[in-house]
Design a protein around this nucleic acid. Structure first.
Lengths: 344, 344
DNA sequence: TTGTATGCGTTATCAC
DNA sequence: GTGATAACGCATACAA
C-alpha cells in the first residue's frame, strides 16, 4: 500500500513551498515558467491529485453536485445522470444522488439538510420536483446554488434549462393535421404540472390555428401511468363516433391506449393513430412502435451541469447563454394518414 | 444566513471541551451521564450535525459510497440506487454514482482514481462490471472496500450479493414442461458473462432432468439487445419445424422475438410461447405481456449497502450473513399450454 | 515571483 | 470521566 501523495510531498520533492504547488494546481498565473514546469512534472510523476475533502474544508467547497428527484422515469433519470456526469468528470466534480418524496412538507427541509450535511456545492433539480417554487425559494434563502430542468420559463436564466414542450406539441399538431386528421382526442396529464399545461396548450392552440376544433369531452386528464392510460382510452374509445387520433401526455399512457385498442380490436394505426411523449424505452419496442416526442435529455443535463458549475465558480457569463432546447418529433408506426369517415 | 454551528459552539455553550462533545456525538461510552445529557441537549437546540468533510479529513473517511456501473438497464440502475439509498440515508452515507466504460484497460485505474480522489469509503459494483475479477483484485490491492452484485459465487461472502439466476431458470424450465412443452429454443446471451452461463445451464440441465432434450441448433447466442433478439428470432422461426417456445436471456431480446412473431403472423402465445428475464419496464407493457423473471433488485441493493457499511465500519458479523437471493417467475400472457403438434 | 503562518471542523493521542 | 493539543491536507492573508 503506497499512501496517497500530498501537496507536501510534491513541495518537498520539487524543492519549493507548498504555497507554490498550490498555485500551480489551481492554475494561478503568477508562477515562474521554470518552477511551474518543475512542479507539474513532479505532480505527474507522483500521480498527485488534491484531496477533495481537505480542499473542501479549507475552501468550504466539496466538489460535490447533488441531483434531486422524485420517482422520475428511470430512463430519464439515467440520461440525466449521463449528461451531468459527462461534464462533471471533466471539471472535477462528483455527482451525489438524492431521491426525495415530493409530497409532504419535510421534503424541502430534507433537501436542505442533505445539502448542508455534505456541503454540496450545488444541486440540479429535475421534474417533477423542479416545478416546486417553494423548494426553489428555500434554496435561494439558504444561499444554495441550483439549476432546474423544466418546461416553463419559471426562473432566472442562469437557474433553468427549459425544454420547449409547447413547441414540440405544436409540431405534433401540425404533423397530425398534415396527415389529414381532425378527430383528435387528448389524454392529458395532471393539471397542476406546468409541463402538462404546456403540452396541452401547445397542441390545442395550434389545432385551433389550423382550423381544427377539438370537442371538450375529448380532452381528459390522466395521471401519467399505464393504468390511467388504459382507463382513459376505454372511455374515449367506447364513444361513437370515436376519435381517430389519441395524443397521450406520455409514452406510458400511450402504451395503455395501444393495449385497449388491441383488446377492442381497433387497428393501430389503420383505424386509430396514437402518439406519446418521452421516447421511452417502450416507445420503440411496443407494437406498433410509437410516434412520440424526444427531449434531448442528455444534452439538457449537460447544460445544467455547466450552469451549476458556472454558478459555483462564480462565472456568470458561462452560465447565462443557452437555456432553451426544443424537443423533436420521432415518427414511427403508430400514426398514419387519416381515412375518410363514412358517416359524419 | 445563520452559519452552521460547529463542535466548538456546542462545547462552548455546554461548557465542556470539544473532545467530550466528540465523544458524545460518536456514541463513546466513557462519558458521564450528566454531561452527556447536557451536551445532547445543546446539540439538539443548535441543530448541530458534524461536518462530513472535516470529519472525513480527520478520520480519513468520507461517508461516501460509490456506485460503479457500465450501461446497465436504466430500470435496474434505478432500483439499485433506491435500494442502496434506503439504507445509506439511515446510516448517514451518501451515494456517488460513477459510470465507466467496462471495455478498455484504463477503466480499472479510472475506478481506483475515482475512489482515491474523493476518498470514497467503499464501492458497490453492479453487472456487468461486477463480473470483472481484474477490477476486484485491483480493489483488494488498493485496500478499497467493495461489494459486488452478481449471479455467481465468485468472491468471499462479505463481498458479494448473489442472485441465483440458475435456480430461477430451473423453475422456468419446470414451468414450461408443466405446460406440456418440449420444442424449446433458447436465445442465450454473450458467453463470456457468468450470468449467461448460469441462466443457460439452469434451463438446459433441468430440461434434461425432466427428459426433454433440446437440439443444439436451437440454442443460439444473442448479445442482449433488441436488435439481436430480432435477428435470432428470425433464424429460429424460419426453421421447420419451428420451436413452440423461445426462452430469451432478457426482456429486450424477448421483445425482439415478439416483434418477429408479429411480422411472420405467428400468434403469441397461441403458436409460440416467449419468455424473458429482468421484468423490465417493457415486460408488462408489451402485447402480449411477457412471462419473465424478476430479481428483487431493491432488496439485493439494500443488502449490498448493509454489507459495504459493515465492511467500512469493520463489523464483520453484520456483513457475512445473508447473501443469496432467488429471483422468481412472473407469469403473464406470453406463455401458454402446448398444443399437440400435427406431424412429428 | 515565492514563502510563512494560520485556519477550516473534526478525530485521536496522551496526559490528568 | 475529562481536557489540552496535535494531526488531517489544503487554501489563503500577509509578508518578503
Amino acid at each position: 500500500m503506497d499512501k496517497k501523495p500530498t501537496i507536501n510531498d510534491v513541495a518537498r520533492i520539487a524543492g519549493v513551498s507548498k504555497r507554490t504547488v498550490s498555485r500551480v494546481i489551481n492554475g494561478a498565473s503568477n508562477v515562474g515558467a521554470a518552477t511551474r514546469e518543475k512542479i507539474q512534472q513532479v505532480v505527474d510523476e507522483l500521480g498527485f491529485s488534491p484531496d477533495k475533502q481537505a480542499r473542501g474544508l479549507a475552501a468550504s467547497r466539496s466538489y460535490l453536485i447533488g441531483l434531486i428527484y422524485d420517482n422520475p422515469d428511470a430512463l430519464y433519470l439515467d440520461q440525466v445522470q449521463r449528461g451531468v456526469l459527462s461534464i462533471c468528470s471533466q471539471k472535477g466534480y462528483e455527482l451525489v444522488v438524492h431521491p426525495c418524496s415530493y409530497r409532504g412538507d419535510e421534503f424541502i427541509s430534507n433537501c436542505i439538510s442533505f445539502v448542508r450535511r455534505s456541503n454540496i456545492d450545488g444541486v440540479i433539480v429535475i421534474p417533477p420536483v423542479s416545478e416546486s417554487n417553494e423548494l426553489a425559494s428555500a434554496l435561494v434563502n439558504h444561499d444554495i446554488n441550483y439549476v432546474r430542468l423544466t418546461s416553463v420559463d419559471i426562473d432566472t436564466k442562469p437557474n433553468i434549462v427549459v425544454s420547449d414542450d409547447r413547441a414540440a406539441l405544436s409540431d405534433m399538431a401540425r404533423y397530425l393535421v398534415s396527415l389529414g386528421h381532425q378527430y383528435i382526442a387528448i389524454i392529458s396529464g395532471p393539471n397542476h404540472y406546468y409541463s402538462t399545461v404546456e403540452r396541452l396548450e401547445g397542441i390545442t392552440d395550434t389545432l385551433e390555428e389550423l382550423g381544427v376544433t377539438i370537442s371538450p369531452e375529448w380532452i381528459i386528464e390522466g395521471n401519467n401511468t399505464y393504468q390511467s392510460g388504459i382507463e382513459c382510452a376505454r372511455s374515449l374509445l367506447n364513444q361513437s363516433p370515436r376519435p381517430q387520433v389519441i395524443v397521450a401526455n406520455n409514452d406510458e399512457m400511450a402504451a395503455g391506449v395501444l393495449k385497449v385498442a388491441h383488446e377492442l380490436g381497433i387497428d393501430v394505426p389503420g383505424e386509430l393513430s396514437v402518439t406519446g411523449f418521452d421516447d421511452n424505452l417502450l416507445a420503440s419496442r411496443v407494437i406498433p412502435s410509437l410516434t412520440t416526442v424526444q427531449r434531448p435529455v442528455v444534452a439538457m443535463a449537460g447544460i445544467a451541469a455547466r450552469k451549476i458549475i458556472a454558478l459555483i465558480e462564480n462565472k456568470p457569463e458561462e452560465g447565462a447563454s443557452e437555456y432553451t432546447i426544443k424537443p423533436h418529433l420521432i415518427i414511427r408506426e403508430s400514426t398514419r394518414k387519416a381515412v375518410k369517415r363514412e358517416s359524419n
